[in-house]
Design a binder for these strands. Sequence first.
DNA 1: TTGAAAGCGCTAACAC
DNA 2: GTGTTAGCGCTTTCAA
Lengths: 337, 337
Amino acid sequence: MANINDVAKLAGVSKSSVSRVINGNFEHMSDNTKNKILRAMKELEYSPNTLAQSLKKKTTKTIGIILSDISNPFWSEVLKGVQKECMRMGYGLMVSSSGEKEQIEKENILTLRNKQVDGLIINTTGKNTDLFNSLINEKYPFVFLDRSTDISNIDTVIVNNILGAKMSTQYLIDQGHRNIGILLYPLENKSPRIDRLEGYKEALKINGIQINHDLIKICEDQNGSGVEATKEMLALPTRPTAIFSTNTILNLEVIMGVKKAGLKLPEDVSLIGYDDYPWVPLLDPPLTTVSQPAFEMGVKSTALLIKKMKQKKQIKPKIIQLEPELMIRSSCLPPLK
Amino acid sequence: MANINDVAKLAGVSKSSVSRVINGNFEHMSDNTKNKILRAMKELEYSPNTLAQSLKKKTTKTIGIILSDISNPFWSEVLKGVQKECMRMGYGLMVSSSGEKEQIEKENILTLRNKQVDGLIINTTGKNTDLFNSLINEKYPFVFLDRSTDISNIDTVIVNNILGAKMSTQYLIDQGHRNIGILLYPLENKSPRIDRLEGYKEALKINGIQINHDLIKICEDQNGSGVEATKEMLALPTRPTAIFSTNTILNLEVIMGVKKAGLKLPEDVSLIGYDDYPWVPLLDPPLTTVSQPAFEMGVKSTALLIKKMKQKKQIKPKIIQLEPELMIRSSCLPPLK
DNA sequence: TTGAAAGCGCTAACAC
DNA sequence: GTGTTAGCGCTTTCAA
């Protein structure tokens, strides 16, 4: 691979001049010099070493994203949006995944930072508060995606999860349901989970329905736990006539759980899931779900980060809240009398 | 952010010594010096600038992947495997997507190369032969993933697509089907598509079934074209009693197409799809598909690339061929008499 | 309009 | 054991 010196030598000029054409600073350059350099570059198939440029310019034109769980198809869709916006803006993208582990999240952040990426999109585990505070201190640009933390004043792209849960719970209530179960992954510090439970409770409260804690199931993260949880819930004396599932994986496990309990969907029990995909309408039964604008989340968070990186002086952080949408299909029916 | 000079100054030593402890070359260093440096590093919260290290060491410990189409959930699964193996081996990962465009693929490759990533995993559009040849010339390490090209002697991770198509076509024939339709995206130079058509034809041939070109539908890439293609095929005088779909997106479109044609799956027409996911068994009907080891493809291609990068002298390129598996569910029935 | 020289943050050969 | 020095490939003053 040829370098700037090779080009300079071949063109018979100094490397400063070559650098000028690399960076498009021709204004005061003779056409002759310029052409000589251009020709030499072509001949050597030269293209500048981005690493060296970055070291000097102190910017890599690359951002990093840290996902909590790359397994969830929801994040693939988000990633697609991130990727697209990066491409459009001429940025590179480094991807990593924390697997919901605080420690790995921390390492990933540190590694990416050392690689000098210009900014970070973080779908945080919700912990690591100290680290985030120190990033803020250093004025290192980052945005939170989908999940916020206790730390206020961070640019964030988020979906209205209270609304999503409220809408779907209300929809079930409107159909006549009173015993509505909800399945969640452990709340920990994760705002979407907390908010979805909150929205569920709010809807019940507004409608004067007592909260039954047996109908709130916290499933273990990641291992088919939703199937068992569903069966347990359906074995309850106060068996729910409807279930609200708060995660893509859980949606599938609830469907399996209901079948295993020997019950029929939606005749015996109604179901609303979370997140929407092209295949959801083709499930048996076609699932009513809360749809989140995943792709848009990716695009918006990237745009927000890039904007933040570009502005020299601190501007007031922005919280972009997107709205979920209830996709009504045929997995809900009024309860049997 | 502190740099190596700050540490050296604070510890009262030269930066060579600091560099030594960064790189773990303590053997001949006094404990005293070492401790002074360690303390200074901690105090300044120092961590080395990877960019500068890379420029000097001529290796970035980062690889790049170029996907043809990040939209397909299949690639999310592959990416998961790539990500995991990168993590395990201490490599960073840069992700880009060509959207099946030759020109964008080329730009992506060039950009990543300029960013000095140590190697590339390429799920190629199948064109860009000249570029690949020049990479080979420069001894720049890359592996092909899922698709191969005319260029021989490239490390490649691939799935046996002929077998996948043959297995599923044979399965349909065994059920008594003779009129079997196949849906494909444009073959262009894409080996999996070519091979799947080949496998389909081979199975027919072995069983003495004449190929009917009306039953081979090439759908336009990416726009619901599969729905129309299915309807057209089902309107044929020699209407197929079974359909073989060769892509995740097409699977869904065929299901929709059959419904729109007023036909029932699997009673009126059997269907085998390609690629498997947790939600496939929950579709209506539970879909029989050819399952590809997507995650494993990601892991294996990464491992192969890293191995290739590490060996100094050229070793004979390796083709890793993985096997697909037919996941039999209930979307196929013997044809009506 | 162009070139010389310093320096981005680090490593490594060499000298002591 | 430790420091000096040159240099990775580039950009950017500054001077000519």
